[in-house]
């Protein structure tokens, strides 16, 4: 199996024939689509549709699928490690580990993972880059099925070079940008297109920063928080306890009215539980 497998999607070559979708459905045994509430149309991504063709103006067809980010937000979000970035590259899902919290669905900047809402034992479903086929040395089913060569398979470096080459050899055909090269830290699925691909991301915006960094900024503060909070609380307890003990001793010496060391009279009572 090759290292960091990648798919280059040439949007200008796609004719919207949906042969890739059929192949995907067959390879993953996905069956019939059925519209459910909250879904725009039956052709939208769903638990039975890992990939779909978005129809854009001017006969532009954009294949929507998991981008297999280099630093996937879904993987960093998963609290049990059901979403995994394999060593080779594809982001896969382990249904035996998943709890079904659906945080991956929230975290994904492209809104890719889908849920089997109508089953009593639901799973998260998404494109696996045909990981099992790759392991057997086969191409992903969609790449194999594409009659227009809109999908090209290779290592990520090869695909980036190929994209640059096509941009060079066909001036004016493509925008000067490969979507997925840097988006959210980079992705394994790259889009070469004549229109902006930002609509694939929420709110039409996705920065270059890997999303896991955002939560790591907060998570790396956990050990210092434990140390500081624990230390400060122990310290305050010790200092106030000592002051109160002294206040009681002073009170015994000077009489009950002396509360010199405390600002509020209520705090002079001795703690009786410890």
């Amino acid at each position: 199996m090759i290292d960091s497998p990648s798919i280059l999607i040439d949007v200008t070559r796609c004719t919207g024939c949906e042969k890739c979708i059929d192949a995907c459905k067959e390879a993953n045994d996905l069956g019939h689509d059925c519209l459910r509430p909250g879904q725009r149309s039956v052709d939208a991504l769903s638990a039975s549709r890992f990939s779909t063709i978005l129809r854009k103006p001017d006969d532009t067809f954009v294949r929507q699928m998991c981008l297999h980010c280099l630093e996937p937000a879904c993987v960093s979000a998963c609290l049990v490690g059901a979403m995994k970035k394999t060593d080779a590259g594809p982001v896969i899902y382990d249904e035996d580990v998943c709890m079904g919290c659906r945080y991956c669905m929230l975290a994904c900047p492209y809104g890719i993972p889908r849920y089997e809402w109508d089953k009593p034992t639901p799973l998260v479903r998404k494109c696996t880059f045909c990981y099992d086929r790759l392991k057997q040395g086969q191409l992903p089913a969609c790449v194999e099925a594409c009659p227009e060569k809109a999908l090209t398979f290779g290592t990520r470096d090869e695909m980036l070079l190929e994209a640059k080459k096509r941009q060079r050899e066909n001036p004016g055909r493509y925008r000067d940008h490969v979507f997925g090269e840097r988006e959210a830290g980079g992705a394994s699925v790259l889009y070469l297109s004549n229109i902006s691909m930002n609509f694939l991301a929420w709110n039409n915006t996705v920065g270059d920063q890997p999303l896991p960094e955002l939560t790591w900024n907060s998570l790396k503060k956990v050990p210092p928080t434990i140390a500081v909070m624990g230390g400060v609380m122990t310290g305050i307890y010790w200092i106030i306890g000592r002051r109160m003990k002294r206040a009681v001793q002073n009170g015994e010496a000077d009489g009950p009215d002396s509360q010199a060391t405390d600002t509020t009279p209520e705090t002079t009572e001795m703690r009786d539980d410890s």
Binding site: S76, A77, C78, L79, V80, G81, V97, C98, M99, G100, C101, R102, Y103, Y115, E116, T121, P122, L123, P212, T215, W216, S218, L219, V222
Partner: peptide
């Protein structure tokens, strides 16, 4: 009620994912 597979609720006990905020919360 909310988890899709509630009988897996104990999984964070054995699968530690230090990069997940949700793991820290759990």
């Amino acid at each position: 009620y909310d988890l899709g597979l509630p009988w897996h609720i104990w999984h964070p006990l054995i699968n530690w994912q230090h990069h997940s905020v949700l793991f820290e919360v759990a």
